[in-house]
Design a protein around this nucleic acid. Structure first.
Lengths: 204, 204
DNA sequence: AAAATAGTTGACTATTTGGTCTAGTGCCAT
DNA sequence: ATGGCACTAGACCAAATAGTCAACTATTTT
């Protein structure tokens, strides 16, 4: 075995936070090392480059976040409820982030994806794949909602694309404007976008 | 007067293209100078920094693009027509870009805004202001459409936010996936999102 | 034609950055 | 306890980068 260490995790956390709070291009390896409390020698012991580290960090983060989404989008939950919960979860998440970082940061994958889309091919492919998976959650919720007669959406995949674009647009705008209020409308926007027939009948 | 030059414009064009095709963080002053065919001394003769140049370039570009939007969103055009034309214009624009740069690049302001949101405050404010203006075009088209009874949108500002988020999300996804097809759906997505009552009755 | 103005040039510096290399250091299995 | 393994420290290097400067050039004004 030999010596053990959590430097690898510390590096992955550091790069995640730095890219998210700033950008990929503006975070340097030195910065990452300093934030992680790791010397450059150790950095290059574990990773080949910033892109390599970022790729590993993305994988790790997705592995971590996925169960939460699985539970939010559980088939046992009514489909429109899933979407509502997802919006609320996202909104709460961004609120925590704002408390922790002082800024609304939006979706890390989407921002990163947009930034490096024409560079870092390997990283890009990874991001695309995860975004595709995220869209699948929406797609199946929409399909279920359609099957239940709650909405009219014969092409669930197309509707999911629309809804996903809307979410990502909202999150990115929240980042650009540094404003959480933008996210407040998400649930209503979702229902309107899907043309939900009976938007939450108020209990009399 | 003294000597005349178009180096300033060349620098602004260069930075626009480089940031758009790549990212803000990854474009260096040397690169900009080389692309513009301008020496560093001249760069610093005209601008204080990369951020300063970028700000000037954004202003110039907006001044250039604004008349096109004014004409697309002319009040003389039926409101839903305006949105359709806008989508088609955007789609055509991205197609040209792809031919020229080899990649779908999306909305330069939005990508840049997302990248530098936590840095470069001055630049950020400028971007926010222009994005706000762009949203206004949508807002007034939606208000007119509502007034004409074409859609139900009592809160035009809110609907415009939703639609704008959708557009930006779409464009950014097109960039991330490097896929023009994503934009094809824009018009239909718009109509669905707005709940247009009679989506283009086919001529019998 | 001279002077003032506007812009250009390229060499120069200091710093940051990515990346390497070697000598170590602590931990685990045997 | 010792030898091998996983990891660390940090000095070091070359290239890239931001930014400066003084001498020079072209154009306009007078």
């Amino acid at each position: 075995m030999g010596r053990v260490s959590n430097a690898k995790q510390r590096l992955m956390e550091a790069v995640r936070d730095l890219i998210w709070a700033g950008s990929y291009g503006s975070t340097t390896i030195d910065q990452i090392c300093e934030k992680a409390g790791v010397k450059k020698g150790s950095f290059y012991y574990f990773f080949d480059s910033k892109a390599d580290l970022a790729a590993a960090a993305i994988d790790a983060e997705w592995k971590l976040r996925r169960p939460e989404l699985d539970s939010l989008f559980s088939a046992t939950v009514p489909p429109l409820e899933r979407l509502r919960k997802y919006c609320e979860y996202g909104c709460g998440f961004q609120t925590e982030i704002k408390e922790k970082f002082g800024c609304v940061l939006g979706c890390p994958l989407f921002s990163l994806g947009a930034e490096i889309s024409t560079q870092e091919d390997r990283l890009q492919k990874k991001i695309q794949a995860i975004l595709d998976q995220k869209r699948k959650y929406l797609e199946s919720a929409i399909r279920d909602a359609h099957a239940a007669g709650l909405i009219h959406a014969p092409d669930a995949a197309a509707k999911a694309r629309t809804l996903f674009a809307y979410y990502q647009g909202l999150l990115t705008e929240a980042r650009i404007q540094n404003d959480l209020e933008i996210l407040r409308y998400a649930v209503r926007g979702t229902y309107e976008l899907l043309g939900v027939k009976d938007p939450e009948p108020a209990p009399t």
